[in-house]
Simulated assay, not measured.
Amino acid sequence: MRNTELEKLNGLVGQWTTTLSDAWFLEPPGVEVPGSTTVEWLGESFLLVRTELREAAGGSELSMVIGRSDANDAYVVLYHDDRGVCRQYGMTFDGAHWTLTREDPDFHQRFVADVEPDRISGRWEISEDRGETWRKDFDLTFDRA
């Protein structure tokens, strides 16, 4: 039986074309990196998110597993990418807005997105002073394929 709070994420399920843009670390300015994302149920308790980015990002691959802590009334996200990076994020989702946040000793990070049925427009931000100031890392857009 699927958890009712996880069921609210069902609109994310599917195939998405993904575009990374406006990244401070890509040259020349204005470069867009195409990719694809698949979101699917992993059993009844988790969502599996797999993203592949092409060319300019060096062929990056990343995965997230979205689950839930009922006792804490919170979504939990585990992240891994092909650099060997593993992270844990807190998550909120209300159908129109999606956020991922982490406040770890190395740096703070957040993803803030507006969600529509066929488009998710988001941006990743980073803070190296424990959340006092933030700078955009890059934009990440998902269009339903």
Rank of each mutant, 00 (worst) to 15 (best):
G58I: 10
G58N: 09
G58E: 11
G58K: 08
G59T: 06
G59N: 06
S60I: 06
E61R: 15
E61Y: 14
L62T: 09
L62V: 13
S63M: 15
M64V: 06
M64L: 14
M64R: 07
M64S: 08
V65T: 15
I66C: 05
G67K: 07
G67W: 12
R68T: 04
R68E: 03
R68K: 11
S69T: 09
S69A: 10
S69C: 11
S69N: 13
D70H: 13
D70K: 08
D70E: 15
A71N: 11
D73R: 15
D73P: 11
D73M: 10
A74R: 12
Y75L: 10
Y75D: 02
Y75I: 07
Y75N: 00
V76F: 10
V76D: 06
V77S: 03
L78N: 14
L78H: 15
L78W: 09
L78E: 10
Y79W: 05
Y79Q: 01
Y79D: 05
D81F: 02
D81N: 12
D82Y: 07
G84F: 14
V85L: 11
V85I: 11
C86D: 13
R87N: 08
R87H: 05
R87T: 04
R87W: 01
Q88S: 13
Q88A: 13
Y89Q: 01
Y89S: 03
M91A: 09
T92C: 00
T92N: 11
T92I: 00
T92D: 12
T92F: 02
T92G: 06
T92M: 00
D94A: 08
D94Y: 05
A96T: 15
A96G: 14
H97P: 04
H97Y: 07
H97G: 09
W98K: 00
T99H: 11
T99Q: 15
L100H: 10
L100A: 01
T101W: 01
T101Q: 06
R102E: 09
R102V: 03
R102D: 04
E103M: 12
E103L: 07
E103H: 13
P105G: 02
D106G: 08
D106P: 08
F107H: 12
H108A: 06
H108P: 09
Q109S: 14
Q109N: 14
R110K: 09
R110T: 04
R110Y: 00
F111P: 02
F111V: 05
F111D: 01
A113C: 14
V115M: 05
V115K: 00
P117C: 05
P117E: 06
P117Q: 06
P117S: 06
D118G: 13
D118C: 08
I120Y: 06
S121C: 12
G122I: 01
G122S: 10
R123V: 07
R123C: 06
R123I: 03
R123W: 07
W124P: 00
W124R: 02
W124V: 00
W124S: 02
E125K: 09
I126T: 07
I126K: 04
S127C: 03
E128A: 05
D129S: 04
R130S: 13
R130T: 11
E132Y: 02
E132A: 09
